[in-house]
């Protein structure tokens, strides 16, 4: 049995952990490729990256991309951008902190250690020297955290929520990447880029030779059952996690059925068929379906408990708001005795 709040925190841990890793990978790719791209091309690549990560709105708040350092700051250290690496690292730590009593100590220590390695946190937005080292450090820490999750954590509901969160985030990323690649302003789809951004280049080469064609790569990233970042794999694993959770929680069982439905649409070739005529629209529709799945999972965590009636019994309107409404809610309450 898991508290709804703990379930939510662990779900977000999974999502932000995945986000920290994938944004680091994207940033690394962008930083490397932009060095040999000129003016407009570099800008197009930067914009494509932002689109892949679904951060167009966040970027608008900052203004148009003018330079590589600006892109790096936006994706690495901008704490106002929830999609930046640092925001994700902070979120992983904060979420794990709130479930500190029920996770392996090593898991907390690794997440806390990653956070502590950003000495500039909370002070400036300046990126540290040695971008490559920083990104490598983040990805290694994410892998270490994944290792502890896989090998050090009991396969309880908490573990299942982390997995579901990761798989949701990952499938959303992969679909976002495919959709953005189809809309590349440069007019061509870069097959190698798609494979690199999903850490799948080597696997593809071994299975399909080293001259990737864009359509083949899209199929691969959607359907490959043995590729950890294919949309099909992610949905299968999310469904598996939700199957255990849904046994006693009816609302989560609805989310499981939706995951199964989306998986079936892929497996039965329905998505591929639709993509033949309208690839972008199909991918956009699939992205909407995934977002719907994510909100179903969130809705399923807090089951309808007739809260409205219970609260109405005891709380006068306006008396007690949501936590966080009042300034510094946690700073009061326990005396220093």
């Amino acid at each position: 049995m898991i508290l709804a709040r703990h379930a939510e925190a662990l779900l977000w841990t999974g999502r932000y952990l995945e986000r920290a890793e994938s944004t680091s990978r994207c940033l690394n790719y962008a930083a490397n490729s932009i060095t040999h791209l000129r003016g407009d091309e570099a800008r197009a690549e930067g914009e494509l990256m932002v689109r892949t990560l679904g951060l167009q709105e966040e970027l608008e708040a900052v203004g148009p991309l003018e330079s590589q350092p600006q892109l790096v700051a936006f994706l690495l250290s901008d704490t106002d951008n929830p999609g930046s690496v640092v925001s994700a690292v902070i979120a992983v730590r904060e979420n794990l902190r709130s479930v500190r009593d029920r996770i392996p100590i090593e898991l907390w220590e690794e997440a806390n250690g990653l956070y502590l390695r950003f000495p500039f946190l909370g002070h400036t937005n300046a990126a540290p020297a040695g971008l490559h080292e920083v990104l490598l450090m983040v990805r290694r820490a994410c892998l270490a955290i994944s290792g502890i999750l896989n090998e050090g954590m009991r396969r309880d509901e908490g573990h299942a929520f982390v997995v579901v969160g990761r798989m949701l985030e990952r499938s959303i990323f992969t679909v976002g990447l495919l959709e953005a690649s189809h809309s590349d302003a440069r007019g061509t789809m870069d097959a190698t880029r798609m494979l690199r951004l999903t850490s799948s280049l080597q696997a593809y080469h071994r299975q399909h030779g080293n001259a990737p064609d864009p359509d083949g790569v899209v199929r691969y990233l959607l359907h490959a059952p043995d590729l950890p970042r294919s949309v099909l794999s992610c949905l299968s694993r999310a469904e598996e996690g939700l199957t255990g959770l849904g046994a006693n929680a009816a609302a989560l069982d609805r989310a499981r059925r939706k995951a199964a439905l989306l998986r079936a649409r892929l497996e039965l070739g329905e998505v591929e068929e639709a993509m033949a005529s309208a690839p972008v629209a199909t991918l956009q529709d699939f992205a909407v379906q995934l977002a719907g799945l994510a909100s179903d999972v969130h809705a399923g965590i807090v089951p309808p408990l007739a809260m409205a009636t219970v609260q109405a019994q005891y709380v006068r309107p306006g008396d007690a708001g949501q936590p966080g409404d009042a300034g510094e809610p946690g700073h009061a309450g326990e005396g220093a005795s």
């Binding site: 898991i2 508290l3 709040r5 929680a249 399923g300 007739a306 219970v310 949501q322």
Partner: peptide, 18 residues
């Protein structure tokens, strides 16, 4: 506090299973 709820003079935790 927000994880607990009182109903019918008993205290409950809010879990994913109710």
């Amino acid at each position: 506090g927000r994880d607990l709820v009182v109903d019918g003079h008993s205290v409950y935790t809010r879990t994913i299973e109710g």
